[in-house]
C-alpha cells in the first residue's frame, strides 16, 4: 500500500473515444484516492463517465492518459497480456445484470473465478462454500442462476467477486435489477464487507444506495463535480 494509506490512486485519468472522426471525452483528468476498507459510491447522470472510470480501474479498457495505482502498483503501465493477472489478483467485479454463467451452479460460478487464479481444487471448494454460506446461500449452492432470485444471483456474484481476495471490489449498478427489499440486503452486505476491511467502489444511480456509502463522488461531463464524505443525509445534485 502507498505511504498515504491509499489502496487505489487515480491520477489525471482521461479517456477519449473516437465517434467516427469526432473525439468524445468520456473522462477528463480525473484524480482521487481511495483508502482500504472505504465504501465509496460514484454517482452521476448517464454519460457522465462513471462506468468508463470503473472499466479503466478494472483494466477492462485502457486510458488515453493518466495512471491507476492499486496497492501502490501502477497497473495502467502493464501490458495487455499482464492485465488478466492484475484483474484476478486485485479486482473483483459485481455487475448490474449479475453476469453469472447460466450453465453453472452457484457453487461453480464462484469456483470458476478461482480456477483462473490457479487455486488448488480443495482450497477452491472450501472458499466457495465459505463465501456462499456468508452470503446466506448455503442451501442454494447447487442451484443454477435460473433457479435463483435476483437478490440471490447478486449475492452469488458478490461471492464470486470476493473469491480471490481482491484489493478492490468494483460494483457497477449492483442494485439496478433488484427490488427495494433486496437492494437493502445487497447494500448492507457490501457495507458489512467494507467494515471488515474490503474496499468497495459502487457506481449507482440510486440515491438510497449512495447515502449508505462512506463517500460519494459525483461525476459530470467526465469530471469530478463533487467528492464528499457522508456524515448524515447528503443531498445529491443531478444524480439518478
Amino acid at each position: 500500500m502507498n505511504s498515504n494509506g491509499a489502496i487505489l490512486r487515480i491520477r489525471n485519468l482521461s479517456k477519449t473515444y473516437m465517434q467516427g472522426k469526432i473525439p468524445v471525452h468520456a473522462l477528463n483528468d480525473v484524480s482521487f484516492d481511495v483508502h482500504k476498507g472505504e465504501f465509496l459510491s460514484i454517482v452521476g447522470v448517464s454519460g457522465s463517465g462513471k462506468s468508463t472510470l470503473l472499466s479503466l480501474i478494472g483494466l477492462l479498457d485502457k486510458p488515453t492518459t493518466g495512471s491507476v495505482f492499486i496497492d501502490g502498483e501502477e497497473v495502467t503501465k502493464f501490458k495487455e497480456r499482464e492485465a488478466p493477472k492484475i484483474r484476478r489478483e486485485k479486482i473483483g467485479f459485481v455487475f448490474q445484470h449479475f453476469n453469472l454463467i447460466p450453465t453453472l451452479t452457484a457453487f461453480e460460478n464462484v469456483d470458476i473465478a478461482m480456477r483462473f487464479a490457479r487455486v488448488p481444487k480443495s482450497k477452491r471448494k472450501d472458499r466457495a462454500v465459505e463465501l456462499l454460506t456468508r452470503m446466506g446461500l448455503a442451501d442454494r449452492m447447487k442451484h443454477k442462476p435460473s433457479e435463483l432470485s435476483g437478490g440471490e444471483q447478486q449475492r452469488v456474484s458478490i461471492a464470486r467477486a470476493l473469491a480471490n481476495h481482491p484489493a478492490i471490489i468494483l460494483a457497477d449498478e449492483p442494485t439496478g435489477e433488484v427490488d427495494t427489499k433486496t437492494r437493502e440486503v445487497i447494500v448492507n452486505l457490501l457495507r458489512e464487507l467494507s467494515e471488515k476491511g474490503q474496499t468497495i467502489l459502487v457506481v449507482t444511480h440510486d440515491v438510497a444506495v449512495a447515502q449508505k456509502t462512506d463517500r460519494i463522488i459525483t461525476m459530470l461531463d467526465g469530471k469530478i463535480e463533487s467528492d464528499v464524505k457522508v456524515t448524515g443525509k447528503v443531498k445529491l445534485k443531478r444524480a439518478g
Binding site: P84, K85, F93, N99, I112, A113, F116
Partner: peptide, 16 residues
Amino acid sequence: TKDFGLFKAMGAGTRD
C-alpha cells in the same frame, strides 16, 4: 461472447 467477456473480467488469460 458475454461469458468470455466475463471470464476475462474475472482474470481469465488468453490461454484459459
